[in-house]
């Protein structure tokens, strides 16, 4: 069995999860990546998506994260997410609300690059909805 390491998931409102885990799979901006114990120090931005956390006991938790940052340091992994909701607690209307937020962000964005970034987020969210429905 893989060695455990410390994982913390923090949102601005509270510390959501702090546990010993064996593996965490995260949706990075440039592709999904997995983190195991002893990973090299690494900082990556996240796109909206599902983080899969395997706890030391073997229990698997799936959490929706939006807009965040993963910080892998020798001390462990910290994910700073603007929003994080466990998939099991997620309702269809919450996803709809997320998409509405993204859509207004696209509408309000100032400047071409900001608009593109917002549009990308929206597309990523819609992808996510598709994969959630399929699951």
């Amino acid at each position: 069995m893989a060695a455990p390491f410390k994982f913390e998931l923090v949102s601005p409102e509270r510390l959501l999860l702090s546990a010993e885990v064996t593996q965490v799979d995260l949706p990075g901006t440039e592709g999904d990546f997995g983190v195991l114990a002893g990973h090299a120090p690494f900082v990556a931005t996240l796109r909206p998506g599902i983080a899969t956390v395997t706890k030391s006991g073997g229990e698997v938790v799936k959490i929706f994260v939006r807009g965040g940052l993963a910080d892998v340091s020798p001390a462990g992994l910290t994910v700073l997410a603007e929003k994080a909701i466990p998939v099991s607690e997620m309702k269809a209307d919450q996803i709809a609300a997320e998409i509405a937020v993204a859509e207004t962000a696209v509408a309000n964005a100032i400047g071409e690059s900001a608009r593109q970034a917002a549009a990308l987020k929206l597309a990523q969210l819609k992808d996510l909805v598709g994969s959630l429905k399929a699951a």
Binding site: G28, T29, E30, A40, P41, F42, V43, A44, T45, L69, D71, S73, P74, A75
Partner: peptide, 21 residues
């Protein structure tokens, strides 16, 4: 002790992350 000494890898680049953050 935790992060200052470690050599970090950044994805995408440092500037992009900083701009996002």
């Amino acid at each position: 002790a935790t992060s200052g000494t470690a050599l970090y890898d950044y994805e995408p680049g440092e500037a992009e992350i900083l701009e996002d953050l």
